[in-house]
Amino acid sequence: MADTDALIADTPEPPYYVVIFTSLRTEIDQGYDAMARKMVALAAEQPGFLGVESAREAVGITVSYWRDTNAIRDWKAHAEHLVAQELGREAWYQHYAVRVARVERAYSFGEA
């Protein structure tokens, strides 16, 4: 299982896939932080999950890494994730965008 506590995900050699979720929140919290933590933990249990990175200021950005598009599709359709998606549209997000891309090249500097 991937380490979801790391600030920078330790991903394998490419190719692999990335889902970039960019969002603007509403003022409503109503369990958002608890659900976000639950979704990261649940995603980490899914076959094909490689890691996650997340930051939130005025704009939230969560980047999740996946072995292939089948793993991404399965995660999107996961029953508990579907509930979180619906709550997000109903209460937590005023706007979001999802982008899926294939990582062809990756490199880093320093120790995580």
Rank of each mutant, 00 (worst) to 15 (best):
R99Y: 06
D74H: 12
Q94V: 11
Y17K: 02
T11F: 08
R73C: 02
W75Q: 05
Q85C: 06
T62G: 01
V63M: 13
T69K: 13
I61F: 09
D5G: 11
H78K: 01
T11V: 12
T62I: 04
R56A: 13
Q46R: 13
P15V: 14
R37M: 08
V19G: 01
A34H: 06
A71C: 02
A106Q: 14
L82N: 14
R105S: 12
S64I: 05
Q94C: 08
A6V: 05
Q94H: 10
Y17H: 14
A106D: 12
A101R: 06
E104T: 14
I8A: 03
K38C: 07
I61H: 07
Q94Y: 04
Y16V: 00
S54N: 12
A84E: 03
W92R: 02
T62R: 00
A2S: 15
Q85Y: 10
V40F: 11
G51L: 00
I8N: 08
R99D: 06
L7G: 13
W66D: 02
A71R: 01
D33T: 08
R73I: 06
E27P: 15
A58Y: 13
A41W: 08
G110W: 09
V52H: 05
L7Y: 13
R67Q: 14
P12D: 01
L42A: 02
D5Y: 14
A71T: 01
Y32T: 09
S108M: 11
R105F: 11
A101N: 09
E53T: 05
T69D: 13
G88R: 02
M1N: 06
E27C: 10
L42W: 02
H78C: 01
E90G: 10
E104I: 09
A2E: 10
G110P: 04
Y65V: 04
